[in-house]
Amino acid sequence: MTIDAQPFMQVKGLKKYYNVQNQTLKAVDNISLDISEGETVGLVGESGCGKSTVGRAMIRLNEPTGGELVFKGEDMLKMRGNRLKQLRREVQMIFQDPYASLNPRMAVEDIVAEGLDIHHLAKGKKRKERVLELLDLVGLDEEHRNRYPHEFSGGQRQRIGIARALAVNPKFIVCDEPISALDVSIQAQIVNLLKSLQQRMGLTYLFIAHDLSMVKYISDRILVMYLGNRIELASSEALHAKPLHPYTQALLSSIPIPDPNFKKRERIVVSGDVPSPLHPPSGCVFRTRCPRVMDKCQEKVPEWKEVQSNHFVACHLYE
């Protein structure tokens, strides 16, 4: 078997449980996902659905309770020592909050070069050259390298965060809500930057977000999560054109559309709040808020089924 036949990144039955007050909190329960090289997969859900936990597990920032992570054919969870350090160069992360994720006491040059220093990739003149190259790549000026994070706006800080992630030449980047803290006019700048970097450097992204319109725009495929469970997986076009799961339908219809003539459309507003993950509902986790709930939903957990080609959903409506 050649490397090419392997999916780039394979998540198999990923579980992450936490112990809270002697109870088990299932933050992520049985998530499986294959990502091909060069692809962007969007991961969508409301706060607390476990999307960031999945993203962090995929670059080994937390240790999953169960399941397998296979990166280019190699079991990621078995990596130790030097191999793990090597992995840190191949997978990187861009964080949500550009205000909290940069050390305020480090100059931009040192922030961007931290990865280079840790992995002994460049020193002295070469290090400076590489930093300038990276700053140029993300659209910052040469003179910015001696400044400190507080001197930059949110969008510029996010660019610094992207330069830092790119410094070690990663293959796979987890973008954890990289634009949700930014202003509208700046969001588009960052999304365009991420897209052009992907084309130039052949990057693979996991793009975590709660803003469905932007996710649709950047992703090839989208996985929707709810309360730690997978709900629906489809190509971004199919998911928007014909969402199958009532939760996805509600999510999509909740996005306010910037066009006043759209006001009259029928809106599905789900009632209530997300239940506590400490006491998830029996059967289907969404049944407490589902507008199309049936008796069956309480008793049985819906199966993950391929309803149309490459369109998966976990819902009793499609059995």
Binding site: E46, S47, S254
Partner: peptide, 11 residues
């Protein structure tokens, strides 16, 4: 707030 909750509040 989350989008589904946002829709509730706006309504």
């Amino acid at each position: 707030l989350d989008v589904t909750i946002q829709a509730q509040i706006l309504q």
